[in-house]
């Protein structure tokens, strides 16, 4: 198992490198730059733009810098390390080298701040929201799915289908707004403005809103696989052996039905904790979702790179955990991955 983890962590290096390269390529291909203003605003003057580009290293070549290397060569430098560094004195490699040291670069919008400062300051809010949403989705989704499958076509089955349909087809901004109008204005159970997001209580309503669609997917997937497993021969064997119904469900059905659920849970958790922009916006939660989305439209280059790399790292980790859990759920799969 240790070998498996090490192998997968080594794999993460090329994955992250390519994610960085692809994102870097994409964002520089997209028209416009980080200092562009809205259409009705005065744009930054040419001299100022040149100065800003110098300040943030955007005047360097994008991928390789042969000019700098040959200049060094001409000046008599023969140390291959120094020459190589000069050759790679480009926007991309400078970013990669800095990122390896933990420096994700300056944000172009929040002038003076570094991307890692912003992310680590604002992320806890998104993390709390996402974790609560996930807990809600799991503790309601899995039991609902299991019951719906065991009592197929019962009222529980239809209720779960009802929530699943709502959760997936009514957009989050509608549900969020309805929650605010109903619980905020009509019942006055929650406050709209008077929330301290450093405490847990205000997260209750938004996490339900956010978790709803994940919950419905988990419910449906659980129901489907439990139905599948329920019909397998070994379940009948287990029943025939006289195992109690609860044992059959927990030991055999759940265990075997959990593989698709776990597969979904991994990336879903990453999506939930990396900032749900709509939920955060409706409930005014100061999380990272908005930064990550706005960064793309504002061409805040280092914020795009930083958020993408962090997201990719989490996806890689989540998938390692998912693949590990396959082995735990079904010992025969252990060799895989």
């Amino acid at each position: 198992m240790l070998q498996f983890i090490i192998r997968r962590l080594l794999w993460a290096i090329p994955v992250l490198f390519f994610v960085a390269l692809v994102s870097f390529f994409l964002m520089h291909q997209a028209p416009g730059g980080p200092f562009d203003k809205d259409n009705n605003k005065k744009q930054v003057d040419g001299a100022t733009l040149a100065s800003l580009n110098r300040r943030f290293g955007l005047d360097k070549p994008q991928y390789i810098n042969p000019a700098a290397a040959s200049r060094l060569w001409a000046s008599g430098e023969r140390n291959p390390l120094t020459l190589g560094r000069a050759y790679l004195d480009s926007q991309f490699f400078n970013y990669v080298f800095n990122a390896m040291r933990g420096d994700l670069g300056p944000s172009y919008r929040q002038r003076g701040k570094n991307v890692q400062d912003i992310i680590f300051k604002q992320w806890p809010y998104s993390m709390r929201l996402g974790l609560l949403a996930m807990i809600f989705a799991v503790i309601t989704g899995i039991p609902l799915g299991v019951i719906a499958a065991l009592r197929q076509n019962s009222i529980v089955d239809y209720i779960s289908l009802f929530f699943a349909t709502i959760g997936v087809s009514v957009p989050t901004f509608v549900i969020g707004l309805l929650v605010i109008i109903f619980f905020g204005t009509t019942l006055k159970w929650i406050s709209i403005t008077n929330n301290d997001w450093n405490t847990w209580r205000p997260y209750l309503a938004p996490s339900l809103v956010l978790g709803l669609s994940t919950m419905s997917f988990i419910t449906r997937i659980t129901r489907s696989t439990v139905l599948e497993v329920k019909r397998q021969d070994y379940i009948r064997t287990a029943r025939a052996k006289g195992l109690s119904e609860r044992m059959v469900i927990v030991r055999h059905i759940l265990r075997n039905a959990m593989i698709p659920v776990v597969t979904v849970l991994g990336p879903a958790l990453v999506d939930l904790i990396t900032g749900a922009v709509i939920t955060e916006s409706i409930f005014s939660i100061p999380g990272v979702g908005k930064f990550f989305v706005d960064a793309i439209f504002q061409r805040d280059y280092s914020m795009i790179m930083g958020s993408t790399l962090i997201y990719a790292t989490l996806v890689v980790m989540a998938n390692i955990l998912v693949d590990l859990s396959y082995g735990l759920l079904d010992p025969r799969i252990r060799s895989q991955g």
């Binding site: 794999w11 994610v19 291909q29 997209a30 990719a312 991955g337």
Partner: peptide, 26 residues
């Protein structure tokens, strides 16, 4: 095969799709 395909999937899953769309569109 599995390792390669799944790592490729991770890259596709991670990079910002919106940017890709903007470029494709342009």
């Amino acid at each position: 095969v599995d390792a390669f395909l799944m790592r490729f999937a991770e890259i596709v899953y991670s990079f910002p799709a919106f940017l890709f769309f903007i470029i494709v569109m342009t």
